[in-house]
Amino acid sequence: MSVAKASREVTLGFLTVVEHGADGLFGGYLVLNGLGRPLEFHCTEPVRPSRAQEILYGPTLRPFLFGEQIGGALVNRSKRPVAAVLTDQEPVLALRTAVDCPMALVLAGPQRPETNVGDPAVGPSAASPGRCRFDPAHGAPAGLALFTLGTHRLAVLGGSSEDRHLITERLGDWAHSFDLAEPFQRIREAIEEARQGGS
């Protein structure tokens, strides 16, 4: 089997949420084949939490909205199984309890060859809005388990150690040639396109 064919058979889900001020939250879920080509795209209409939710969910509001509400709605609409769901928004990981495929947080884009291991993992496109950044000097975000896949830094929920193993196994072969952070930029642009009302 050719590398291209093997890569193509992997499907990956990329999920992110964009905040648009007063308009609310827009979720986008992009399913790609192993060559990075789009197979499915799902996006939400704007979601705005009620005042009661804001008060009563308190600090758990974002995981509730990003993960359970938006993430759940998007992943449930997908027609294809995916090897993993990746996100660049930590609250989206709350979706993990509702899906039965591994999930990981992409912390930064591929490291430049000249980047030292000990340097802050600021990838080439790390300046993109919404991108999670991680400075090793300050340790891992609470409740997350960090690991490296190819040139990428990922994190899974602390209680999902099996996810790390599955993601490494399923994505390890081609993670070297694929910028796992790049598809989120596509999603943001697609959300913007949809938001502006093209139809």
Partner: peptide, 10 residues
């Protein structure tokens, strides 16, 4: 919260 979503298949 009711989340409405749109789907595009390629």
């Amino acid at each position: 919260t009711t989340v409405r979503a749109r789907t595009f298949l390629f």
